[in-house]
Design a protein around this nucleic acid. Sequence first.
DNA 1: CGGAGACCTGCGGATTTCGCAGCGTTGGCG
DNA 2: CGCCAACGCTGCGAAATCCGCAGGTCTCCG
Lengths: 176, 176
Amino acid sequence: MHSDVVASRSADPKDSRESRSESRNGAGPHLDAVSLAIIEQLQEDGRRPYAAIGKAVGLSEAAVRQRVQKLLDQGVMQIVAVTDPLTVGFRRQAMVGIHVEGDVESVADALSAMSECEYVVMTAGSFDLIVEIVCEDDDHLLEVINRRIRAVPGVRSTESFVYLKLKKQTYMWGTR
Amino acid sequence: MHSDVVASRSADPKDSRESRSESRNGAGPHLDAVSLAIIEQLQEDGRRPYAAIGKAVGLSEAAVRQRVQKLLDQGVMQIVAVTDPLTVGFRRQAMVGIHVEGDVESVADALSAMSECEYVVMTAGSFDLIVEIVCEDDDHLLEVINRRIRAVPGVRSTESFVYLKLKKQTYMWGTR
DNA sequence: CGGAGACCTGCGGATTTCGCAGCGTTGGCG
DNA sequence: CGCCAACGCTGCGAAATCCGCAGGTCTCCG
């Protein structure tokens, strides 16, 4: 059921114009206030019924459903379960700062391809790249940092910050 | 993939359902294989119906529902919408490394109380604390870093890494 | 003017969620 | 040893939700 791509009446290929998914961060498809309000609702509870959301934002159930589906298709948001990795058996995490020589973006792509890299961001400052690593144990972490990451062409040096304790983790942008 | 736990009705006693292990930092009992499988399902799609999850993990719809509710109540996981902040109107983000003198945890608590801090983690390495900041614009970011964070007692110095481009952001722990 | 696209509403029918009553297992305890 | 409370799972209607679809409005063009 997931893959039948609604689009009951918008199965138009040219429709893809600027809705090209996920990390085109320059500027996403601009969201209006209503979509923002819908996102806010779902940031509080990802399973809230469409009808309840509709009541909150002033739209019909069907309209909310269509908007949500579009936001998901466009990659503007995803509705997922998030956990503290420590409780799920990943005992070692680290933030790794990386100095790059040459093309930063290609290095970022290479790191993004690793499943252990949960989070990859290009930054200004003394690091060119910052990535978050999630591993099962020390050996795993060591291997990822010392063998895999440093083996990527363009990576000149790294600095690791092993997690001792996760104090806060929220997803409430917009809910302020 | 999902082990053989099907057990249409056999209550496999071998699996010591809940070991009272504590080795974690925040809260929450250890998870058995079935709960882990449920979380995996919800990491793929936070709105997946309980019946579908049940089919995948070998449990009835009602059992899945009860487990999910418990996981939510215990705070082991949350089901939420996540977005790239840039597409939602937060144009400035930064990772901030912090050097602390004195009690690190109390500083972490103070930072956690700020709504602009999305992510707060205590680390080993040259920083004592790493926090992720989400702001609306440069002025906002400047104020948070230079006035609010540095005003927290115990914060000795900070180093900022302004986000240029978010390359990857996933929540698929366990789905590997 | 007329058509295409975007977006909304309303409405049945299929699904899903929800609450509750059983039931088997486990563990504590007199 | 036997009783009982605590848990967790199942099954089952009833209620609520989801889903697809048809139809209406508005805007943007050629």
